[in-house]
């Protein structure tokens, strides 16, 4: 029987939205799936060598559980994003959730194919040297060539 296949389109570059693609990709690979993740628009931030700029903001994120209710006027103050990111990272660590870096490394180790959208790289004038080395740069048509023949295809 041929291996099952999964394709994920990762379009968000915040800490909270970075987890689902990496968790699902690494787990599917562990289950024997052939997996490709296509990073486009803000998702491309997740392919940077340095992931420290991946943050979470409580602003316009009303579903985010907060220790104390926080008015929007307070959420917009300088430093709130860094603080929320630090607190979220502490929480993830305390509960034994892997760091993004660790999950991404596990994906690469399990031969999950990480693909960057070439158009986004050009659009935002990104420097490819800022991204990890073992990725491919392709367009939508190339990715759809794989995605069109998968068992699971997700847009995150």
């Amino acid at each position: 029987m041929a291996a099952k296949r999964m394709a994920i389109i990762a379009t968000k570059g915040t800490l909270d939205m970075a987890y689902p693609p990496f968790i699902l990709a690494s787990t599917a690979a562990a289950l024997g799936y052939e997996v490709q993740v296509f990073f486009t628009f803000y998702g491309l931030q997740l392919l940077r060598k340095d992931l420290s700029s991946v943050m979470i903001s409580p602003l316009a994120n009303p579903a985010m559980p907060m220790p104390v209710p926080m008015p929007v006027m307070v959420q917009m103050l300088p430093g709130m994003e860094s603080m929320a990111t630090m607190m979220m990272k502490q929480k993830l660590k305390k509960h034994g959730v892997a760091s993004l870096q660790e999950l991404r490394d596990l994906c690469l180790e399990a031969e999950v194919k990480l693909i960057a959208c070439q158009m986004t790289v050009d659009l935002f004038e990104f420097d490819k040297s800022e991204f990890i080395d073992n990725i491919e740069y392709v367009g939508a048509a190339t990715f759809l060539g794989f995605a069109g023949d998968t068992d699971i295809c997700l847009f995150v």
Partner: peptide
């Protein structure tokens, strides 16, 4: 011990 989803599965694999 102490690891959350999906680490126990990935480490098992």
């Amino acid at each position: 011990r102490g690891m959350s989803c999906p680490l126990p599965i990935l480490k098992t694999k």
